[in-house]
Computed example of a mutant assay.
Amino acid sequence: MDTISALEKATRNKKTIGAGLNVLRYVALTIWLVFAIFPLFWMLICSLKSDAEVVSTVFKFTPTISNYQVVLFRQDSNFILAFFQNFIVSGGAILLTVLVGVPAAYAFARYDFKNKEGWAFQILSFKFAPEILVILPVFMIFQRLKLYDTYFGLIWVYQLITMPLLIWVVRGYFEDISVEIEQAAQLDGYTWYEVFFKILLPLIKPGLVAAGLLAFIFAWNSFTFPLILSGTRVQTITITSLRFLASDSVHYGQVAVAALIAVLPEIIICLFIQKHLVRGLSFGAVKG
């Protein structure tokens, strides 16, 4: 009886400790959730304030939609046009990156050629190089080739941002797939193209989605390249948002509206592909 009582007591203590740990876990997750969402909440509050209330009040204010009217509907704002132009440039950059980067990543993962790692590191160095370091020669090249202030020009130069990231991430996923899978499929009569599109691409889809999303975020938020390489015909929202920073004052409410609208596509895309994103970011983290 004493042994049974001791076991029951130990079991109750274990359950109590487990319940306490679960409570601590939920409290920690709640604190982290508040920490992560608070910037968006604060931008929303600032977007509903006048410029005077932004600096004089915290939560007690009179809501107004005048900032949204100025940003979205004022004729000289052009924010909506810049929003769609940013989609065209960023989406086009990611499409080109995927079409070129995935085969390049496969080549780096599967084939051995002279100075392979040197070429791979050279591609990666483009991501690490400061944009301001290459902007002047790129600007002169764009002027000569008539690519200045064009969609294709920005899509092409964005490859310096998006291509290295996607190649290096997707290369790791290809390397984690056994070569025997491809060989077995070819023995069954599959051509190389069928193996690549029907077997390999579905296997790397989580990683491709994660890398594509990160590349899209970098392209969407790019500032230096569109600032120098675009003019009046093609503008991104990162450049158009500067219009709300006057020479003598800052329209905080309008800047908050622009920032809030600019971040919405990234949030919406993350919510729609979060399953693939989580699998892609965690794939290969635990190896048995």
Rank of each mutant, 00 (worst) to 15 (best):
D2Q: 14
K15T: 01
I17V: 15
L21N: 06
L21W: 08
L21V: 05
V23P: 00
L24M: 05
R25L: 07
W32V: 13
F35V: 09
A36G: 01
L40D: 07
L44D: 03
L44Y: 01
C46K: 06
D51Y: 00
V54K: 14
V55Y: 06
V58E: 05
V58N: 08
F59L: 13
I65S: 11
N67V: 05
Y68S: 03
V71I: 06
Q75M: 09
D76P: 02
N78C: 10
N78F: 11
F79E: 15
F79T: 10
A82G: 10
A82E: 03
N86L: 04
I88C: 08
G91P: 12
G92L: 14
A93R: 12
V100N: 09
V102L: 14
F108V: 09
F108S: 04
F113I: 02
K114R: 06
G118C: 08
F121E: 09
F126T: 05
K127I: 02
I135C: 04
M140N: 11
I141R: 03
Q143G: 14
R144C: 04
L145E: 13
I155T: 08
V157A: 07
V157Y: 04
V157D: 02
V157L: 03
Y158S: 10
Y158D: 12
M163N: 04
W168G: 10
V169K: 03
V169S: 09
R171K: 15
F174L: 03
D176L: 13
V179Q: 08
I181P: 00
I181K: 14
A184I: 11
Q186F: 05
W192R: 13
W192K: 15
F197I: 15
P202I: 14
L203D: 07
K205Q: 05
A219D: 03
S222G: 03
T224G: 01
T224C: 09
T232R: 11
R233T: 14
T236C: 02
I239G: 02
S241A: 13
S247C: 00
H251D: 08
G253N: 10
Q254K: 12
A256H: 12
V257W: 08
V257T: 08
I261S: 03
I261W: 01
A262R: 02
I269F: 07
C270A: 15
Q274M: 09
K275C: 02
L277V: 01
V278G: 07
G280C: 06
G280V: 08
L281S: 08
